[in-house]
Structure formats: C-alpha cells, structure tokens
Design a protein around this nucleic acid. Structure first.
Lengths: 198, 198, 198, 198
DNA sequence: TATGAATGAGGCTTCATTCAT
DNA sequence: AATGAATGAAGCCTCATTCAT
C-alpha cells in the first residue's frame, strides 16, 4: 500500500518482467514437449515454475496464448536461420537437404523429451508448425528463382511435411539424422521433376 | 454412494445394444470432427446423444477407447481394399496409384467424419499400425517381384504413409482424389529410383 | 478441462488458512457424528461448511485424511494426560483409576463430537496406535515397579483398551465418568491378580 | 408372455427361489467379510453371484436388508448353540469360558478372510453383533440363577465385548484360542466378584 | 421370475481464474 | 507486480434402481 522507496528499480523490474515471461515460456515448452499440448494444463506450466499461479495471468491469458507466444518467439530466433539456409540454396539438393537436416536435427536434439506415449499421439510443436507454414513460401520462392522445378507448391509442402514427420519418428527412435536427410532429399530430388506440371 | 437412492425414470430403452453402440460412435465421430479429439470430452459425446451418461460406460471405458473403435472401424474397412489393390499391381505405377487411390477414395467417402487435425494430433490405433506393417510387407514383396526398385522398404513405407496422411487432409478438405493420387504417384515414381541403394 | 472457463465469484476469502482448516475439521466432526463416518461423504462435509468444494482439497486429500486429523488431534490431547496420570500412580488402584478417569474425562469433554459407533467401525490412527504402545510400556513399567502384579502386559493392555473403548461408548451416551471409572477399575483390580502367571 | 408348459415346476421354483436367496446371502457374507460392510456395494454382492442385478431386488431391498437377513439367519443357526452352552453353565468359569471360546473359535475359523486393511477398520459381522445383544440377557439370567455374582449386567456385557474384540485381533493375528480364552476368563473370573454391588 | 441394459443422481476431483494481501 | 488460497463449474465415473423383454 505505502510505496516502498524504489531507487532505480526501473531497469530491474523490466528485467524481472522479461525473466518471468521467459521462465513461463521455458516451462511451457518443456511441459508441452513432455506431456503434449493437449494434455498440458496451465497448472502444469505453473508447477514447472517457481512462480505463483496468479503470476501466470500477468503474462498470458491462457495456455493457447503461451502456445502462440512460443511459436512467435521461435519465429524470431530459430526459423530465420532455416530460411536463410534455404534462401541461400543454390540448387534443389541444397534446398531440400538444408530443410530436412534442420528439422531432423531439431528433433534429434529434443529426442527423449517426449515419452513413448503408449497411445502414439503426435502434436507438432509450435515452432515446427510455424516452420512448415513458411516452407511453402520458400518453395514458391525457390520455384520462382528456378532452384526448384515448377510444381504445386502447396501439395509439395504437404508431401515434404508428411515425409519429414514420419521420418522424424525414426529419428526420435534413434535413427541417424544424416541418413534420414539423405533418404528424404533423394526421394524428393528424384520425385519433384516428375511431378505434374502445375 | 450409500445413501440418497437415485430415481431412474424411464426413457429410450427401445434401442438395441448394437444400435446404442453405433449411436455413441456416430456422436463421437461428429463431436471429434467438430471440436477436435483433444478438446472433446466424454460429456460432449454423451450430450450429442439421446442416451444417459452412464450408458456411455456400458460401451466404452474412455474417450480414447471410442477413438480407437472409430479408427479400427475405418482401418478394418480400408485395409483389405489396399491390399487387394496392391496385390494386383503389375508395375510401380500400378502399385503406387492403386495404393493412393484406394486410400484417398476411402478418405473421401468418409470425408467430414474424421477430426480435421486442427490440432495435428495423430493417434495410431492398433489397426492403423497393422496397416503400416502390411504396407511394408507389400513393398518388400513388390521389390522382390521387381515391381518396385530395391530400396529401404521400411523408410519407404514411412514416407508413403506420411505423404498419404498429409494429402488425405487435402482430400478431407475437398481436394480431388485423382489429382492427389496423380501427385503422390508421380512423386514416388520419380523419387524411388533416386533413393540410396539399400 | 480445456474449454468453458469457469467464473470465480468472490466470497469468504476473509478467513485465514488455519481457520479454514478448523472449519473443515469442525464440520467433519459434526457430520461424522451425525450420519457416521462410513455414510459421510466429502460433499457432506463441504456442505456443512460455508466453503467451496475445491477448498476442501486444499487441506485434505480425502475423508480418511480428515478422520485421521481428527483422531490425531484428540490423541495428541489425551495421551500426555494419560501418561501423567499413570506415572504418578502409587498402586494398582491409582494406576487403573487414573488411566480410566483420564480417558473417560476426555471422552466426556468431547462427547458428541465423535461418531456414535452406530456402525461399530473403528479406525485406529497412528496416534491411537502410539497411545496403545505407550499403555503397554507403562504397564510393563508398573509391573516392574510392583505397582501391578506380573502378567502378560501385551494382553492386559489389549483388555484395558477394549474395556475403555466399550465403556467410552456409554460415556458418550451420557454415562457418569466416575461410575465408569469405578466399574472398570474394580474389574481389573480384581481380575489382574487372577491372571495366569506370565 | 405365453406361458410355457410348466409341469410340476412348483417345487422346483421354490427350491430355486430359496437357492437364489442363499446365493445372495453367501455372496454378501463373503463380500462384507472381505471389503467390509461399509465399503461393499450391492454391485459387489451381485458380482460375487451368477445372478443378474435385477434379481437382487426380488429378494432384498437394499444392502442393509441383506445385513439384517444375515444377522437373523445366524440367529437361527449359530447362536442357539452358544446360548445353550451358556444356559447349561454350572458356574461362572463355565459361563465365561464357553462364551469366549465360542467367539474366539468363530474368529479363528474366519481368520484370513479379512485383509489386514492398512487403515485398521473394524466392522463387526452381523452374527457377532447379534451374539452380543444376547450376551446381556444371558448375563442377567446367569446372575438371577446365581451362576454369576450380581453386578451391572449392561456394563459387564460391554466390558466382555471390549475384551473379546481386542483379543480377537490377536486371534486374527494367529494367537491361540485357548490361551486367549484362558486369559479373558481368568480376568473376569477374578474381576466380577470385585465389581461394585449393583 | 430372471435378466441385464439404461438411467441419472451424485460422489470425487481438478481446473482455470479471481482477488485480497 | 507477485502471491497463493478460494472459488465453483465441470469433468470423470460408479452406483442403486428400474423396467422391457
């Protein structure tokens, strides 16, 4: 009630605010990864945090908002690298290999966080979903630039995603990233030119 | 538990056992399709039914069990079609097109009944897993027969399944079965010969 | 779980934590006393309270845990009195009368708060069990000191406890403490010397 | 709807009726003994039976009614023997020893049916409760006949019950029936004459 | 009479969210 | 801003009981 003397707390408070936000996001990332987004509750996220339950609501309105923040945060950090890799791709081989390698590497690094889940449930992490949203744009761009042969970019991105997801299961089970990358890259390198003209 | 006896008032005791099971499955299919499997509750399913809450538990132990039943029903229907289609294939083009066409046709026929994957959750039922196992066997068989070029049958079946599942989403959203079949078939027809020797 | 956010309307947020715990314990004591422990439900306890249902679970995990807390509170209060009474006993008459009087007095003072044993259910809490253990030690000590004749201390403590519990029911029903004490004391005073040599 | 030809079924039906009643009572006795009367549900009893749930209600209105029937049935079979033993008792020693021995023998024979019950819960079986109800009458009778010294029959029966129950725990744990009988008999043989004149 | 599926009240518990401190 | 106890809606499930066959 009575204001405590706050000498030069401005900076500190901002830092704390940012820190709490990060704390919650980190906890959410971990919790979503471990028990899945659908099963996760706000309580779970809070419990994975030293913060109080009420504090959560100073930063996010709901679990969904955290999810969005996570997706957006990743957009700011991880994905530009991937995009850059693809933007710099000189040919289809580069483009595909870079894409798959980045994805499988990500999966391999997070390997083991997800329990085997008796019921095989797959929920794509926010960053992955956002990444695939951009994939299509990059594909179109690559087709325009002549790096990839012209084809239906929408269907192609779906196919790429499908293969990536399935092989990701192998990566989670311990398969080698380079082998998966090689397989998927070869498949599309051979397949894309054969696709119906769009 | 002990006291306060409830009062069972009569009501729709007319339906047969099998009919009630179907009623619940149909309601679940609708509810899962509308609000998604993850968001759906057993209550939601019951409410989409003229039945009493307790009746649900006469048929299924949980939401997951309903899901499995739904999936198994579908897998049970589609698998013989897939195997038959593949067994008659004379060449790779036949094998692939028949497989994809059978799957997409089935999906199209059941369009709207399955969750829109808004949440991208996939739960493999035993039947679906069995379907995968069959696919791999059929691929190996086709490679042995020379219908398909030699490659890693396990990874190839994963890739086929991935593409099939992703494009199935398009089919559910109204895409043309033949177009999807053509796209997927061309992709693999071109891609498989390019795969690393196994 | 996921959807349909509830709406927390304010209400008695004024009480302290300790007060709420006491509120629940008091309600439980009353409810158990009125309809019996077995018939009572957590709901019944909550309903005898101005608190919300969820609040119960902030303090106790189950009906049993409340019961234990209740019993422990009582045992915690009565045991020091019993030991003190017994420690000062100069002869068997003193030992027995002091023990019974202390116990019956305690019961009389808490009369009406404990289940009427309508169902004859007894659930020994750790504290009660500890009380038993103390009784036996005290009996052995008294035998060593010559205050009580030698006998099987274990069986004797069981017999004392049995008589005490049964007569306590009479005390709860309004019987006179001194009369019960006199009866029980006389019984054991006459009976102990007749016990088989140990 | 249309009556099946029932040739001389009268007797058979009666038998079946009586058999079903016995089936339910036997199942109830077992279930009450195993999980306790309070925890037992009508469902549990039915499940321990080859009968259908609805059939239960052709014989009993509730769990309580089964309990009463059990108590009454036992009254018709077991207890008269005990009463006879006591009625024929020539002296206090006979009276007490016969009572305790009968009770401890019963407990020993049913030993092991009751699980250790982490929470020590004791619920007296119907037959036991009924037995103790009669005990007091027999005590009064014995006092009238001069077999027992005059005392407060009500309190004495309570004390006898208390000791019997506690020592019964020892019997359940494997203690010897004769030893317990001897201990309890001696205790009361010595104690009763010392009781306050009534 | 026997059956057993249907019923729905009601018990248990967790959850998202609020709000006094 | 942070805290965390309180709230009560709502999910889950079991139960006693009814009733059509």
């Amino acid at each position: 009630m009575d204001a405590k003397p706050s000498r030069a707390t401005g900076g500190r408070r901002d830092l704390t605010k940012a820190q709490n936000r990060e704390t919650i996001l980190a906890a959410a990332r971990q919790v979503f990864g471990q028990i899945g987004f659908a099963a996760a509750t706000v309580r779970d996220v809070i419990r994975a945090t030293p913060l109080a339950s009420g504090t959560f609501y100073n930063y996010f309105k709901s679990k969904e908002e955290v999810y969005r923040a996570l997706r957006d945060d990743e957009a700011l950090a991880v994905r530009p690298q991937l995009r850059a890799a693809r933007a710099g791709a000189a040919d289809a081989q580069d483009f595909l290999a870079a894409s798959f390698r980045a994805f499988f590497t990500f999966v391999a690094e997070n390997r083991g966080e997800t329990p085997p889940a008796a019921e095989r449930v797959r929920m794509d992490s926010p960053e992955v979903l956002a990444g695939f949203a951009e994939l299509r744009e990059d594909i179109e761009d690559a087709m325009t630039r002549g790096v990839l042969p012209a084809a239906d970019a929408s269907l192609l991105s779906a196919a790429l995603a499908g293969v990536a997801f399935e092989l990701a299961e192998r990566v989670k089970a311990g398969a080698d990233v380079e082998e998966m990358t090689g397989f998927a890259t070869a498949l599309f390198l051979g397949g894309i030119p054969a696709l119906p003209r769009h």
